[in-house]
Amino acid sequence: MERRIILDPGQWIAFMVVAVGAMIMLGPFYFMFVFATHSNTDILSVPPPVWFGGQFVANVQVLLEKLPYFWNNLGVSFYVAIITTALNLFFCSLAGYAFATYEFRFKNLLFMIVMSTLLIPPFLGMIPTTLIMTLFGWMNEPRALYLPMACSALGVFLMRQYISSAIPRELLEAARMDGCGEFATFRHIVLPLTGPAMGTLGLITFITSWNNFMTPLVVMRDMEMYTVPLALRALQGSGQVPWGAICAGSSIAVAPLLVIFILASRRLIEGMTAGALKG
């Protein structure tokens, strides 16, 4: 059914508006990368640069002068994000499996409690987080960041949806007939079949942890233990603002997200909206 579409002026305007909108969406990213490759004097000239320059390495050096622990911060961010992701994949799939395939008392009530925790606004947890981490002596410890987020409600929901639709009950019954224990059934039958949902959940968790700002802000006090967003924030403040270095650091912080997004944007969008749509 190939047919030529002839556009009237109104439709042309609509296309133009959508295209300009897309440029507004992409612009800040583009200029972040461009400014990351220019020196401060270039950026602060009129008109500012609009194409890539050759100062990226110099900017990273300025960044390292201002933030001597930046590579460390990058490591903390990666470490926390990876552990958070691993814990979520395990705990959420286990809980999602229980909600999807077992019949047990209070199942619906318990599931409602899980979903209602999504409504608790994050700012409400800020002061309590400081308190509890001080109490446990976990200030400046990565576990203060990954343990509270080790099993997200959205993850439980996503895994429940996927397991109940993708894994036939007969398969589980057959495994049990063969004498497979409860955990072994999960480990050897269910887990290998949850690949796609695990992928989505893993990426969402990684991104959420990577971008998290509020929790590190109140539990990471030593520069050395800052996560990347926290380190970048520390560049603000008095004196000459090193825009080139800030943009270089921001580019490094955003780059992993862009890679993930380019590889899996559809899956991510579907996974992130699923909780809002069906929950």
């Binding site: 969406m25 992409l26 972040m32 971008n211 967003p229 970048l232 924030r233």
Partner: peptide, 14 residues
């Protein structure tokens, strides 16, 4: 959708 998934801090600085 891209702005939604990127680091708020990084992009606010930009």
């Amino acid at each position: 959708f891209l702005p939604f998934i990127t680091s708020t801090v990084a992009i606010s600085l930009v």
